[in-house]
């Protein structure tokens, strides 16, 4: 049977917040009987965009990661709920029953992603229901996907086997796979958020003038093993990405046919711009 999945491309998300606003528009002040009750006017982020600014000026990049109910196939919230208050639909969508779930705060606590929000006024756990009420009416995609200006969000209605294949082919990841919850929300280019880079700028004095050095060869190694390599660009800048945060010391060796090599040691916590390296 075909089921719903969501693919989030971190590289394409530019924080327009149209997904968040679509959800706000769809659920604030609106009752969708059998699906959800109105979202509070403020304070809930059923779609919650995380931000990671990596590096230091002037070498900085920014990644945004929209997070939401993962509609897990092995959802802790379903287990935590009493009275079948959280159900898994045949199409993969997880719905917190707005009547049965009243008073069940443990549903909020059960979610390892913090994607379930507690509605104080209604004494109710709430999450984004994938706009199931609209899909059931024949909508082709949920509203956050419709309103996304960059194509960072894609909803996919396919068989689980096909989705698994697609995940493998496209290198899709899920959040916190170690939790074993089997999320239906997949991420592409998540490394832009979760991994680190080491970058720098190669310069030299040439004829008494400081210049950017293009095409310097940069070799990154750890404990003698090569981790990555790259070339500096026209501004002398280089960047080696996809490193684990807090992964300790690295050696950056920079060489160029016209200059003698330089080596810099880096202890990597978060992404690091090592500044200028002068031949």
């Amino acid at each position: 049977m075909k089921k719903w999945n969501l693919i989030v491309d971190v590289e394409k998300c530019h924080n327009s917040n149209n997904c968040f606003l679509s959800v706000a528009d769809e659920y604030m002040g609106n009752e969708h009987p059998g699906y959800s009750t109105a979202m509070p006017k403020h304070g809930h982020h059923w779609i919650n965009i995380l931000r990671n600014e990596r590096g230091q000026a002037p070498m900085v990049d920014v990644a945004y990661v929209p997070t939401m109910c993962n509609h897990c196939d092995d959802a802790p919230c379903i287990k935590a709920a009493e009275n079948d208050a959280v159900i898994k639909r045949p199409d993969g969508i997880v719905i917190i029953d707005p009547e049965k779930a009243v008073g069940q705060k443990q549903i909020v606590d059960a979610c390892p992603y913090g994607a379930v929000w507690w509605n104080e006024e209604k004494d109710l756990p709430q999450a984004w229901i994938f706009d199931a009420h609209l899909l059931d009416r024949g909508w082709k995609e949920p509203r956050p996907v419709q309103a996304c200006p960059t194509g960072a969000l894609k909803s996919v209605l396919i068989e689980d086997d096909s989705m698994q294949k697609r995940a493998e082919d496209e290198g899709l990841e899920v959040l916190h796979p170690e939790q074993g919850t089997k999320p239906r929300v997949y991420y592409k280019n998540l490394n832009l958020y979760s991994k680190c880079f080491i970058g720098g700028s190669v310069i030299a004095d040439i004829d008494g003038v400081e210049e950017c050095i293009e095409k310097a060869f940069v070799l990154l190694s750890k404990e003698g093993s090569k981790i990555g390599e790259t070339w500096s660009d026209a501004f002398g800048d280089f960047k080696i990405d996809d490193l684990e945060p807090g992964s300790g010391s690295y050696e950056v060796e920079i060489s160029h046919p016209d200059h003698s090599s330089k080596t810099v040691s880096v202890s990597l916590g978060e992404s690091t711009y090592i500044g200028t390296v002068k031949f």
């Binding site: 917040n17 149209n18 606003l21 002040g29 200006p149």
Partner: peptide, 19 residues
Amino acid sequence: PPRKTTISPHGLASKSMVY
């Protein structure tokens, strides 16, 4: 381009301003 219009956040949030 996709066959739909795009919308700015301040347009998309219009309902919350109406009410």
